[in-house]
Simulated scan of single mutants.
Amino acid sequence: MRAKSNVIVPPGVTLGALGVVGFSFSLPATRLAVAGLDPWFVAFGRALVAGVLAIAYLALSRAPLPSVTQLRRLVVVAVGIVVGFPLFTSLALTTQTSAHSAVVIAVLPMCTAIWAVVRASERPPLAFWLSSGAGLLAVLAFVATGGGFSGSLSLADVYLLVAVVLCGLGYAEGGALSRELGGARTVCWALVVSLPVTLPISLYTADFSRATGVVWLSFAYVALISMFLGFFAWYAGLAAGGVAKIGQIQLAQPVLTLMWSALVLGESVGWLALATSAVVLVCVVLTQRNRAPAPAAETAQAVR
């Protein structure tokens, strides 16, 4: 008689992991896209494409209109994930490598956890902060040892840090709001709210003279996955498992991005990446063990 496995992966962790896998190729894809398109168009154009898809999704799902209070919170979400992060990472990747950017963005899970305390009223225990901090240190140590960090703060680094602060805010606010609206509807309404900004800027910065097939494929990825479908899973995961807790799964994203950078962009990644991957995955597991998963009913609401 075979013994049953006691290992059960909470839905929030599964959804969050799916989101991270989707996001992990965002920086390499953006790097390829800005090689042939204006970085402002890459940032706002992808939100415009996702916004059109969002209108279709909301119409087909017959989503009710958000309340005035929810609209105000959706503006905060839009500032973080629709405008802030795409714009500042696009600007940074015109001069900086995807691998270097992945390392700087390694501080995003910690930033998300801090915003979760401020905006989502979460109170992670000390063990959570220790596990999260250990994962962050492992990634930063990898960068320093591997030569991915030059030691000087460039303008691109400033762009990336601004992107991280705004993205952490958008993640925390969106994750909390997803408990009311659902993950898919939260990102869709944020995209629709942003259309008065994303539409005119996209039209103004549209210049396709240098765009190649690879550029368009990369742009399609950041529009369909990074800006749309990836958030369906990510926000649902944040709502179901807690913003601070699920946000730490993104500690694995820099390592995944480095792997994509090596495979697609030809950047070298050595054995240190593998060692860091192992340490980071352990830290992710520890952060997930520090808090109980959300009830099943809340998970079902979060997915919508």
Rank of each mutant, 00 (worst) to 15 (best):
G133C: 07
A206K: 05
T112A: 14
G174N: 04
A141N: 11
S154P: 02
A239N: 04
L71M: 15
F128R: 05
A116R: 08
Q70K: 15
S150V: 13
V7Q: 12
P86M: 07
A297Q: 13
V77S: 12
L137V: 11
V9F: 15
F208N: 04
L136P: 00
S98G: 07
V83R: 07
S121K: 15
A17C: 08
I249D: 00
V143F: 08
V214M: 13
V269I: 08
V13Q: 04
R62E: 12
S209P: 04
R185P: 07
A302V: 12
L58S: 05
R304N: 13
L18E: 01
L160V: 03
A33H: 02
V264P: 02
V49L: 11
L137T: 09
A206T: 08
S194M: 14
V192M: 08
L87K: 03
V158N: 07
L181S: 05
S67D: 14
L169G: 12
V79S: 09
V285S: 13
T14E: 08
V303L: 14
Q70C: 14
A211L: 09
V76D: 14
G237L: 03
V164N: 04
G19S: 11
N6Y: 07
V21E: 04
A102V: 03
R62I: 12
V68W: 15
Y57A: 13
A78W: 05
I246W: 07
F44G: 01
V107W: 06
Q288A: 07
P293S: 06
L263K: 09
F232C: 06
W189L: 06
S178G: 06
V158T: 08
F208M: 07
W234Q: 14
A59C: 11
P254L: 01
E173H: 07
L272V: 00
L274V: 04
P39K: 01
L93W: 01
A302Q: 10
G148C: 03
T257E: 02
T276K: 00
A99E: 05
S218M: 03
S178E: 02
G147C: 09
A275N: 00
